[in-house]
Nucleic acid binder design. Structure first.
Length: 370
DNA sequence: AACGCGGGGAG
DNA sequence: CTCCCAGCGTT
């Protein structure tokens, strides 16, 4: 069998399958390039089911590029809360401002222009150009690499950038004339619904008859991907500083730095200790917390008692956090803008990483019941 | 090329 | 537990 026949079969069968099997997703209800763009950013490393409610809230609150461009950055971040990879939100708004100023508020349809937008890489550029503008550009993500690896029995390591480059060439060849939008989505839809990572549903697959991996019984061995290394545990103490007087019923929180991990999100003030042994010593935690906050101009008195514990898991890091109670000293000042008092009424106005949302919610509920 | 960056669902 | 998801930016 000629390879070109195999390719034609793949493209035609896949497209036919997609016309019937495509899911009704919010961003498929129009070809509004802005909606396509927002959805593609949200879908980076994030499942469809997770994205749907975020997408609906986001386009409801920011219905146009202009409205997104003019919104307060805090507001954008708030609508991203819980979705992860927060630089996506910051980059999306920066890019929206660029589109508003440079391109008259219209998502550009040129490859160079789209690729130049912040947060838009090779995959997202291809997705926007093909889905919104039906241009024959490949959009190669994890789904596509898995599908192509299996169908063509390709053993290249998909963790390597060079493999993605090669797949882009192949994926572009496969696009039927004038069908870029549906075909690219069909490829990803197959990867998401049928050609899944662990146990592909080959009996329901429209291209199973010519899938080389399937014919060799090797579909579960592909794609080849080198492993990432294990996440490293770190240990931290957080202070739950209860306010008094004008701050009664409130808790002291602070905003994280402009860049890096969880940029600009809010947290309980906390410090990192050297290892698991140090984490067992809450009297040291108390001392370290008081000293560290004093360095920030915040005078507090902590206790050794542990009133909360939580874990936050990142790809590369695991935070283990123990919470110690504290009160602000008489001469508490802290004119640092990073620190604020927050009560249950203001809680939802701040963007929290899940771990601090959990700890604070627990605290406020306990406080309310006592 | 390697690493940092979140959170959640599936097996 | 592990894997991995409609990846990108930085170094």
């Amino acid at each position: 069998m000629e390879s070109s026949d195999s390719k034609r079969f793949f493209s035609m069968e896949l497209l036919g399958w997609y016309r019937k099997a495509r899911r009704d997703l919010p961003w498929r209800r129009s070809r509004d390039p802005y909606h396509i763009w927002v959805s593609e950013i949200m879908l980076q490393q994030t499942r469809v089911d997770t994205v749907i409610p975020y997408f609906n809230r986001f386009v409801d609150r920011f219905p146009s590029i202009e409205r997104l461009a003019e919104a307060p950055e805090e507001d954008v971040l708030k609508h991203w809360e819980g979705l992860g990879y927060y630089s996506r939100a910051r980059n999306l708004q920066a890019a929206a401002r660029e589109v508003a100023e440079q391109y008259g508020g219209v998502v550009p349809s040129g490859k160079k222009e789209v690729s130049g937008l912040k947060g838009v890489g090779p995959y997202t550029a291809g997705a926007i150009l093909s889905i919104a503008y039906n241009q024959p550009e490949p959009a190669v993500d994890g789904n596509v690499m898995r599908v192509l690896s299996r169908y063509f029995c390709l053993e290249d390591d998909i963790a390597r950038p060079s493999t993605r480059i090669g797949m882009e060439g192949l994926a572009q060849e496969l696009i039927p004339e004038g069908e870029a939008a549906d075909f690219n989505q069909a490829l990803m839809e197959l990867g998401a619904l049928i050609c899944t990572p662990k146990s592909p549903s080959c009996t329901e697959c429209p291209v199973t008859d010519m899938c080389l991996a399937r014919l060799q019984g090797r579909e579960r061995e592909l794609p080849v991907k080198t492993k990432a290394k294990k996440a490293k545990p770190v240990y931290r103490f957080a202070a739950l500083v209860e306010g008094t007087g004008p701050h009664a019923g409130k808790v002291l929180v602070r905003q994280r730095s402009e860049t890096g991990l969880l940029a600009r999100m809010w947290e309980l003030p906390h410090i990192e200790v050297s290892d698991a042994d140090a984490w067992e010593d809450s009297s040291m935690g108390k001392q370290r917390l008081e000293t560290a906050l004093a360095d920030d101009g915040v005078r507090i008195q902590a206790k050794e008692q542990i009133i909360g514990e939580a874990q936050h898991i990142f790809t590369h890091l695991i935070w283990n956090i123990r919470v110690l109670p504290a009160v602000a000293a008489e001469e508490y000042v802290a004119d640092r803008t990073a620190y604020e008092w927050v009560g249950p009424e203001q809680f939802e106005n701040y963007a929290w990483p899940n771990v601090f949302r959990k700890l604070l919610t627990e605290y406020f509920i306990r406080a309310m019941n006592s």
